[in-house]
Design a protein around this nucleic acid. Sequence first.
DNA 1: TACGGACCTTTC
DNA 2: AAAGGTCCGT
Length: 299
Amino acid sequence: MIHQYRIAISIQEINLERTLRSGQTFRWKKDDSGIWQGADGNAWFSLRQTEDSIDVSSNVDEPTTRLYLDLDRSFADFAAHVAAHGSELSPMLSGMQGLRVLNATGTLETVFTFLCSGNNSLHRIIPMAGYLGGKGSLWPNGAYRFPDLDQLLEVTEAELRSAGFGYRAKFIVQSAARMRDQGGETWLHQLRNATYDQAWPELTSLPGIGRKIADCICLFGLGHQDAVPIDTHLWQQLTRLYHPDLVGESLTASRYEYVSRAFRDRFGPVAGWAHQFLFEDNVVNGRSRRADRTSSDVR
DNA sequence: TACGGACCTTTC
DNA sequence: AAAGGTCCGT
């Protein structure tokens, strides 16, 4: 059955373009008509956004879509909350209206696509995520349902190697096998009911998943919004804003723990959202900021 | 326990 | 050289 409905909401409250291209999910596509085609877990969505509404076609009802897009929380309230805990983020917020952290339920997809993300760039992560997604079945909107664990278990390391996955091929095959041994998707989804502190060590027990990717899975795939993935972008931001003595230093495990805890202490339950703004700001502005610094420092 | 180097491949 | 890191050996 196909549901069709219009959700009245301003583009300041949720900006699909900004949100779906912010690197928390990798398989959404905007078609030639400007409609976003995607899938998450058991759902598929066609979304057409205007200034004040989103027209939805989907196999799920409106409450389910609202939950996925997290629409029942106010972006404006949230942004105010972030600004109250860190005024240094205020200047960034005006350019990031409607950038949200989605409430994905397809946790298996989060695990295996972020397994592709390490030491990699978006230009390559997206086609890799698309390749894995293609192992699943086709939804009516042209998006692929992400394969289940049994389907992933059929993929071989040799195949992924030849598909350009590099050394991540082994991690993917090994993690799929390990997950099966630990209880499969039942085990994974049960981490949703666990706390962040409980879920994190479970995830890092999978090969290829270290502290950063475990934090991504906690935040983007399990709904643990106190998780703070610290990648190279966050590290640049956090050192610049809060730990100037560490600027330019390498991100070691001990520094990760230290900086991560400090950020969580500052922003509490909205730490994950605050992280998303800092990440996005660095992706957009970081290069020029680095260029400014080096051009004035060097020579 | 903690750091530094290797690691696939593509793109800037 | 750097990319939204992780693993391994010292």
